[in-house]
């Protein structure tokens, strides 16, 4: 690639444009990390010791995990159907699944709130079962699930599409039931897509904010905590939390990527 650049002016141009994106992302993050960890390490250490902050980060990570788990369980069958079958209205279903990606997050928040609030259509039914969404952990989970499931379904669908349907047919002729040919053949061959779709869904859930504050300002997830501290204490109060969240997410995703790369070898 690099030896080619010298002889290809177009590649040089593309390279410069491409690097601008990369540099922009790195600049924003490294500037923050540098000013926090090098210039103001004391504030950062205080934040690490703050139980409220740690609680909010933990809450963010595990509510997003639950949202992703729901997305995986409900999303795999949907992804499989969308990948394998042609039927009337399939385009419409695919478009519907993508809606959460395109609508503004606060809009999603309002929609979910009116559905899930204590007086909402679904909220009423669930409150009889003792599950409350409004200002509750389950509200956070539902908001995260709403915005993150399209990422999982999309990735898993591409995964199932990449599996040759003849493999399942052969398995059937060899004696596998429909269920067995699915979980012994199609599912393991899609495991990488499912894994990376789940990572994306989890990351999307962690980053959600707009929809969550409307349905559940409390208990505070990390993003809400950052905003609250920014409003009261400014940059000095909020940046350490942001830095801690970034570090935790970064380490987790790198670790997961490594695991999934390893899995590929087997």
């Amino acid at each position: 690639m690099f030896s080619e650049i010298r002889r290809n002016p177009l590649l040089i141009l593309f390279f410069i444009f491409g690097m601008l994106i990369v540099v922009y992302i790195i600049a924003a993050l490294s500037n923050m990390l540098y000013s926090q960890l090098v210039l103001h390490p004391g504030d950062f250490i205080n934040v690490i010791k703050d139980p409220d902050v740690l609680k909010s980060i933990w809450l963010t990570l595990y509510t997003s995990f639950i949202a992703t788990a729901i997305g995986v369980i409900l999303g795999i069958p949907l992804a499989y159907i969308l990948a394998r079958y042609e039927f009337y209205g399939k385009d419409i279903i695919e478009a519907i699944v993508d809606i959460p990606i395109i609508i503004p997050h606060t809009v999603a928040g309002i929609a979910l709130f009116s559905l899930l609030m204590k007086r909402g259509v679904v909220g009423v039914a669930f409150s009889k079962l003792g599950i409350v969404f409004q200002d509750n952990m389950w509200g956070i989970v539902m908001a995260m699930f709403f915005v993150s499931c399209p990422f999982f379904v999309g990735t898993a669908r591409e995964g199932f599409k990449s599996v040759n349907p003849n493999l399942e047919s052969v398995a059937r002729t060899l004696g596998a039931s429909q269920w067995k040919s699915f979980y012994q053949i199609a599912l393991p061959l899609t495991s990488r897509h499912i894994f990376s779709g789940a990572i994306m869904s989890w990351a999307r859930g962690i980053s959600e904010f707009g929809a969550i504050i409307i349905i559940a300002y409390y208990p505070m997830i990390a993003s809400t905590m950052i905003l609250a501290r920014f409003n009261t204490n400014g940059l000095l109060g909020s940046q350490p939390i942001a830095v801690l969240l970034i570090i935790i997410c970064f380490i987790t995703f790198v670790a997961l990527r490594l695991v999934s790369k390893r899995g590929r070898r087997i």
């Binding site: 040759n164 003849n166 493999l167 052969v170 059937r172 002729t173 004696g175 039931s177 429909q178």
Partner: peptide
């Protein structure tokens, strides 16, 4: 269903 027919099947792409 195919699993109850006991036929062998060989595809063009071997599968």
């Amino acid at each position: 269903s195919p699993e109850n027919r006991g036929l062998g099947f060989v595809y063009q792409d071997y599968a």
